[in-house]
Structure formats: C-alpha cells, structure tokens
C-alpha cells in the first residue's frame, strides 16, 4: 500500500516546516513543564479525549512551551478524567474529576502563573 500526499499539500507542509524550525531555534530547550493525561479505558470513557483536545488547543492558543504526554490507568478510575502537572523542580500534582473548563483554569493558573488550583487537586507527589 503506497501513500501519496498531494503536491499542493506537500508544498504547504514544506513551508510550515521552515516556519516551525525558526520558532524552535528561538525557544529555550530542556526545562519545560509537562502535563500527563490519563488515557486508559477509564479515562477515555470519562472524557479524556476532549480533555486532551482542550490542552492541545490551549497550548496552541497561548503559544506555551509545554510537553503533553499520556499514560494508562493509574488505579484512580473513579477520579477520571485526570491529569498530572509537572512544573520544573516542583512537586507533581494530580488533578481529578476534570471538565474542559477546569483544564483552562489549570493551564492559566498553574502552568502559566505557578499557582496550584487547590480545589481540583487529588494527590501530590514528590518531584
């Protein structure tokens, strides 16, 4: 099975590639915050796909340097959808029972301003 990408789209892709490269050169590498999304069966059934979608949209919209990764079931199925926020050098915070509005709040207050959103926290772990 051979896959061919159409020529017009390819041209766009190449232009984008060069743009992205310029942006990356300007960015500071290494010490990025990270959000980990629970994507086990329990997470997906509780709405993790839309949680992930909202995180990616916020990252894009606010143009922040944030690593987004996913994990399987961590044994807190009843608290799904949940995410972990890891700020460089700080404790890893687990947030649970989340809505997409909660995600916007967490990104604005925790990731950008560095303040933990206390009422959504379900666990704290050592860094």
């Amino acid at each position: 099975m051979e896959v061919k990408i159409k020529l017009k789209s390819l041209k766009e892709l190449k232009e984008l590639r060069n743009k992205v490269q310029k942006e990356m050169e300007m960015r500071d590498q290494g010490t990025n915050p990270e959000i980990i999304v629970g994507m086990g069966t329990c997470g997906i059934a509780a709405g993790a796909r839309d949680i992930l979608k909202t995180i990616l949209e916020e990252v894009d919209r606010r143009n922040i340097d944030l690593r987004v990764t996913q994990t399987g079931c961590i044994g807190m199925c009843e608290k799904e959808p949940l995410i972990d926020v890891k700020m460089p050098g700080k404790k890893r915070i687990t947030y649970g029972n989340l809505s997409t509005d909660d995600i916007k709040k967490i990104i604005a207050e925790h990731v950008i301003n560095g303040n933990i959103v206390k009422d959504l926290v379900i666990a704290k772990h050592e860094a």
Binding site: L10, E12, L13, K14, L16, R17, V20, Q21, L56
Partner: peptide
C-alpha cells in the same frame, strides 16, 4: 520524510 528532523508533534504540523 518532508519534515526533515522537525517534530511531527508541533502545533503547526498537527494543524496541517
């Protein structure tokens, strides 16, 4: 292949 080392995970590429 077209990205030549740039991450496919970048927002702009995902948009494409």
């Amino acid at each position: 292949k077209e990205l030549d080392g740039i991450s496919i995970q970048s927002g702009k590429i995902i948009g494409w």
